[in-house]
């Protein structure tokens, strides 16, 4: 029996040496070491042996088993490394199958960024009606009735025939600034608010004008708000949106609902200030009209302007999107052409 065991061991080692595939190796493992394998056949026979031989043969079987196990393991390692060293052709440049993922509209992406920036600064978001009263769109905002200040806000009017409304009493809002009065009169200061939304203007449609556009209005009301805070906020927001190297400058302007009035210019991100069609060759883009909230606006909104003051600003969302992606025609943003939309 001793001889048979040694023969089995040698036979196994020889077979293992010759093996060239993982499958054959696995089969050998089963045929020698498996539950119904050859080694087990000997183990079963140990019982039949005389007591004196039992220990010796038992040890011999165990040793042979160990040698076979080790050899199998070594062979497996050898096979693995020889397989890996073989030069197999595999083309990694084959394009993948198309995923089914969709696309966000660039305006969604940029608006989310803007909302995140303001959340970080502690602002709350408000959403309000696009069908607006003249009162909130103009009167609260200190637009004198029948004053040319209204001309800049080219206004459409709703057809109010057969209703109790007076002509011009309700309009498609011309700016989300209309929400200043609504939020202020119904909320307690201090306030930090932004209002994204659609606005409407009576404009002939061309590359830089539309009947509709999106604006993000923002305002802060607190006990001692400074012009420097407004400058700082505008700079923080524009640098967050356009990068820390963005260049910003401020100019005086007039809007009835702010005093002092501020206009923020961003160095054109398309031409880096050299002058191009985006910035009408000026190198700068008017991007964030703003100012300190006019005391009349506060008092009309039931906020005591002797205690509270604030600033307000508006971001032309469509303008930011077009500057970000160098879109030279505002109509692109609402043209549902997949050749456009799949770029984002």
């Amino acid at each position: 029996m001793r001889e048979e065991i040694l023969n089995l061991k040698n036979e196994a080692l020889a077979q293992i040496m010759d093996v060239v595939s993982f499958d054959d190796l696995e089969n050998l493992k089963i045929s020698y070491l498996g539950r119904k394998g050859k080694i087990n056949d000997f183990i079963k026979k140990i019982g039949e042996l005389p007591q004196t031989d039992k220990k010796e043969i038992g040890n011999l079987i165990n040793d042979s088993k160990k040698v076979i196990e080790v050899t199998l393991a070594k062979k497996k390692e050898g096979l693995t490394s020889s397989l890996l060293s073989k030069k197999e052709w595999f083309d990694l440049t084959i394009p993948g199958n198309k995923t089914s993922a969709g696309h966000f509209h660039p305006q969604t992406t940029v608006l989310n960024e803007i909302l995140d920036i303001f959340k970080y600064l502690g602002y709350q978001i408000a959403d309000g009606p696009e069908i607006e009263k003249d009162y909130y769109n103009f009167e609260v905002l200190n637009f004198p009735p029948e004053h040319p200040a209204r001309d800049a806000q080219q206004t459409m009017f709703f057809d109010v025939s057969n209703t109790s409304f007076k002509e011009g009493q309700v309009i498609p809002r011309t700016h989300t600034s209309a929400m200043q009065g609504r939020v202020m009169e119904a909320s307690k200061p201090p306030l930090r608010v932004i209002v994204p939304g659609r606005c409407f203007r009576y404009e002939q449609v061309d590359a830089s004008h539309g009947v509709e556009f999106w604006q993000v209005e923002g305002f802060v009301v607190d006990k001692a708000v400074h012009l420097t805070d407004l400058f700082g906020t505008i700079e923080f927001v524009l640098k967050s949106l356009f990068g820390q190297s963005a260049k910003i400058k401020f100019a005086t302007t007039f809007f009835p609902f702010v005093e002092p009035g501020v206009d923020a210019y961003l160095e054109c991100t398309v031409c880096d200030g050299r002058g191009c069609t985006f910035c009408k060759q000026t190198g700068w883009s008017e991007i964030m009209p703003a100012g300190m909230i006019h005391p009349n606006v506060l008092s009309k909104s039931k906020i005591d302007s002797k205690i509270w003051n604030g600033f307000a600003f508006a971001i032309g969302l469509s303008r930011v999107v077009s500057l970000r992606y160098q879109i030279d025609d505002l109509r692109v943003l609402h043209t549902p052409d997949l050749r456009i939309l799949k770029q984002f």
Binding site: D127, P190, R192, T228, D229, F250
Partner: peptide, 20 residues
Amino acid sequence: YNKFPKTLPYGATPKDKIAY
């Protein structure tokens, strides 16, 4: 305007939920 320093509003952030 461009000679002004730039700051951010100072003070506690508003606690109450705003209208709208």
